[in-house]
C-alpha cells in the first residue's frame, strides 16, 4: 500500500553464516529528513541499505519504501527511489555519458533528457565522453550521484558518499546533499563520520555490530551526550554522596577520587547545590562534564561489547 513515508524498516535481520550482519534493525525516515545512518566499519550499514534496495533478502523483518516492499514488489518498490551501495561502478569501456544513457534506458528513459544537466551538476561535463575506465575514484563517485539523480528520486539512499574523496571533494559532496535536500529530496546517508552526520543530518540512527544503539533527532543526541552529567567536588565527599542519593533525583552517582559524578537535568542541579549548602557542605566545584558528542558516539559504538555472533 503506497504511503508517504520514505523508509520504514522493522526488525530487519541478515545473517552471513555465524555473523549476524544486521540484527533487528528498525529505521523510520520521514519526508524531508536528511537521515544519518552512522556506524563504524562492519556495523551493518551497507547490508541494511542492500536490503532496502532489494539487492539481498533479509532473513527476518520487513522494509517499506513509500509503503512498498523491495523484497516482493520490484521494480515498483524502487519508484522514486535511487541510490547505490559502497563505491559506484560503471562499465569501464563505455563513456560516462553512455553509462548514464544506459541507466536512463533501464529506467525506461525517464531521465535521458536530464543527463547533460546532471553531468554539469557533478562537474563531469568535460570528461563525459571519456571512458569510465580512466576515471578517478572521486569522478566515479560523482558519476554515481549523477546516475542516481537520473531517476529523479524523491528518496536518495547514499552509502558513505564521501568515501574516498579528497577534502575538497567531500565538501562538494556535502554541499550537493544539502542542495538536494533543499530541493525536497529525502536523503538517507550512511557514514562512519560523526562530523559529517552532524553537519548534514537532522535525524540519526547509530548502528553497532548490527544493532541500532540510538535512534532519534540529532539535537536530542547532543542533549544526551554532553549536558546532563556533572562533576562535583565538596568539602565532604561521603556526605555529599549520601545527600545526593537520599534527597535528590540525581542518577548514576559515582565517586571518582575525592569527587563525585552524577547525571541530572539542569534544573535539578540548581536544587542540588542549594541542598548541599543547606546540609553544611562547601562546594568547591560543580561543573558539567565536557563529554563531546564524539566521545559519546565512541561510547555507544565501542563501549561494552554487544554479542554479535548468533
Amino acid at each position: 500500500m503506497p504511503s508517504d513515508r520514505p523508509v520504514e524498516a522493522r526488525g530487519l535481520v541478515k545473517r552471513y553464516g555465524p555473523i549476524t550482519a544486521v540484527d533487528d534493525v528498525d529505521l523510520t525516515v520521514e519526508p524531508g529528513d536528511v537521515y544519518g545512518f552512522l556506524g563504524p566499519n562492519g556495523a551493518g550499514k551497507t547490508t541494511t541499505l542492500r536490503i532496502l534496495l532489494g539487492l539481498i533478502r533479509p532473513d527476518g523483518g520487513e522494509a517499506r519504501l513509500f509503503g512498498r516492499d523491495p523484497q516482493h514488489e520490484l521494480p515498483e518498490a524502487l519508484d522514486g527511489v535511487a541510490g547505490f551501495v559502497e563505491t559506484p561502478y560503471f562499465y569501464p569501456y563505455l563513456s560516462g555519458r553512455k553509462n548514464l544513457e544506459l541507466l536512463a534506458a533501464f529506467d525506461r528513459d525517464g531521465g535521458r533528457a536530464r543527463i547533460d544537466q546532471l553531468l554539469q551538476l557533478v562537474d563531469l561535463s568535460g570528461r563525459a565522453d571519456d571512458r569510465v575506465g580512466g576515471y578517478s575514484q572521486g569522478m566515479r563517485q560523482r558519476l554515481g550521484v549523477a546516475s542516481s539523480l537520473v531517476r529523479d528520486p524523491r528518496l536518495l539512499l547514499l552509502d558513505e558518499p564521501t568515501n574516498g574523496l579528497d577534502p575538497g571533494g567531500m565538501r562538494d559532496m556535502r554541499r550537493l546533499v544539502d542542495r538536494l535536500s533543499g530541493e525536497g529530496i529525502t536523503v538517507l546517508l550512511s557514514s562512519h563520520l560523526l562530523a559529517e552526520v552532524e553537519e548534514l543530518c537532522n535525524r540519526v540512527a547509530i548502528i553497532r555490530t548490527g544493532r541500532i544503539v540510538y535512534e532519534g533527532m540529532l539535537a536530542d543526541l547532543r542533549a544526551s551526550a554532553g549536558t546532563n552529567r556533572y562533576r562535583l567536588r565538596t568539602t565532604d565527599s561521603r556526605l555529599a554522596r549520601l545527600t545526593l542519593l537520599e534527597h535528590s533525583d540525581a542518577r548514576d552517582v559515582s565517586p571518582d577520587g575525592d569527587e563525585l559524578t552524577f547525571s541530572a537535568a539542569e534544573e535539578e542541579v540548581a536544587a542540588i547545590s542549594r541542598m548541599l549548602v543547606g546540609a553544611g557542605l562547601g562546594i568547591t566545584a560543580l561543573v558539567p562534564e565536557q563529554q563531546s558528542l564524539e566521545s559519546f558516539f565512541f561510547e555507544l559504538t565501542e563501549g561494552e561489547p554487544v554479542e554479535a555472533v548468533a
Binding site: 542492500r50 534496495l53 532489494g54 539487492l55 521494480p75 524502487l78 519508484d79 535511487a82 541510490g83 547505490f84 551501495v85 559502497e86 563505491t87 559506484p88 561502478y89 560503471f90 562499465y91 569501464p92 544506459l102 541507466l103 533501464f106 529506467d107 525506461r108 525517464g110 546516475s147 531517476r151
Partner: peptide, 12 residues
Amino acid sequence: GKTLKMILTRSL
C-alpha cells in the same frame, strides 16, 4: 565489474 548493483536498482 560490480555493476550488477547499479543495473538491478533501476526499473527493469
